[in-house]
């Protein structure tokens, strides 16, 4: 079997933070018992704490090839799945009851610092960053599992957990530097994004990609030279891995965000970057400088009416071109295992 790698490019200039991807994934996969608090797809406001809260300080991944210790995130750091006192408030006949999360006023949630960002008015700055499991080429989770319960498929590079072998040790959850593995306290197993394998096998794009109203996500194989992924990652070099320094070689790439000009003391526009380049470099590495220059130059070319293959690729006037070979509709796939219950990932 060929060692092909399916990959995704997420364009942060088109992501509007609406969380439709989060809901598409949630309603498809993580509403089973013990998964109430799981969001396999999250969209966070950056700069911010992210999900789980402060994940970039939780360790894991590699440095100079050496495994780095990590710590387990708590459910409260992912955001507790609040329940609400519907009965009491709506029908309970208590005209003073207030509809709010049961168990007191929360001080953190999955999307608590939405639209806050950093800096000071009028030069504050933020953008949205969707995250899923990166199905890394060198998965830290796979190498950390003492039971070999995590495997990477040859045909598409999707990383899966075999729940029959998993004993809930969660070394994988510590070792993943992106904290994209979730623990099911009811079944005592670790679970994670499976890149919508049952859909992808039938040529249907992942739910987070296909249901994204912002047309933000490109899908395809890394080695498919005339697909959008290859062009954006290798040809134009504008799609960059998040935290390459974690050395897991993630297969989800990001188009870095542009931003409107910042202002001087009088409030007039300056040419200084609104989003500090140092911050973007801390996320995407040094190549982000050149990537941003390319984006600005190609955008200016379009403004002058000149053609730009990069801009046409990012615009993707024909929606279905985003998804490379995965362009079928879920409705047309007979007996889709859309609601796969019970044990998942026992394909191995």
């Amino acid at each position: 079997m060929s060692d092909r790698q399916v990959a995704m490019v997420i364009d942060l200039n088109k992501c509007i933070g609406c969380q439709t991807c989060t809901i598409a994934c949630k309603t498809m996969w993580t509403s089973k018992e013990g998964m109430e608090g799981m969001w396999w797809n999250t969209v966070s406001t950056a700069p911010g704490e992210g999900t789980p809260k402060g994940w970039e300080q939780m360790g894991g991944g590699f440095r100079d090839g050496k495994a780095q210790p990590g710590r387990l995130p708590k459910q409260s750091e992912f955001g507790d799945p609040w329940e609400f006192n519907y009965e009491e408030t709506l029908f309970g006949g208590d005209p003073h009851a207030t509809l709010k999360p049961s168990g007191g006023d929360p001080d953190w949630g999955t999307n608590w610092d939405e639209d806050v960002g950093g800096g000071e008015y009028p030069n504050s700055f933020f953008f949205y960053i969707p995250r899923i499991c990166n199905h890394c080429t060198k998965p830290a989770c796979m190498e950390a599992c003492p039971r070999g319960a995590i495997f990477k498929r040859d045909e598409d590079g999707i990383v899966l957990i075999n729940e029959d072998h998993c004993r809930g040790f969660r070394f994988c959850q510590e070792a993943c530097p992106y904290k994209e593995i979730y623990y099911n306290a009811v079944t005592g197993k670790s679970q994670k994004c499976l890149f919508c394998l049952p859909r992808m096998e039938e040529g249907v794009a992942t739910a987070c990609s296909r249901q994204c109203p912002g047309r933000v996500r490109f899908l395809g194989f890394l080695d498919d030279e005339d697909g959008p992924i290859h062009k954006l990652v290798y040809d134009h070099k504008v799609a960059l891995p998040l935290h390459p320094e974690y050395e897991t070689e993630p297969n989800v790439f990001y188009i870095p965000p542009l931003a409107p000009p910042s202002f001087d003391a009088e409030g007039n526009p300056t040419e200084e970057d609104r989003i500090p380049i140092t911050y973007l470099m801390s996320l995407f590495g040094g190549e982000v400088v050149e990537a941003l220059e390319t984006l600005k130059a190609e955008k200016a070319a379009r403004k002058r009416g000149e053609p730009s293959e990069l801009m046409d690729t990012l615009i993707s006037r024909n929606w279905v071109d985003l998804f490379g070979p995965f362009n079928k509709s879920p409705k047309d796939i007979e007996a889709m295992r859309l609601m796969e219950g019970g044990q998942l990932g026992t394909a191995q």
């Binding site: 089973k32 018992e33 998964m35 009965e87 029908f91 006949g93 219950g341």
Partner: peptide, 29 residues
């Protein structure tokens, strides 16, 4: 439960924290 304060629902979903559609799926199965 939609009517009176003291009533208790006859729906299993109201007595469990389990996701309603997940519970419906198992029962339908």
């Amino acid at each position: 439960e939609a009517i009176s304060k003291s009533a208790c629902s006859l729906h299993e979903a109201a007595h469990s924290t389990r996701d309603q559609m997940d519970l419906f799926e198992e029962l339908v199965r």
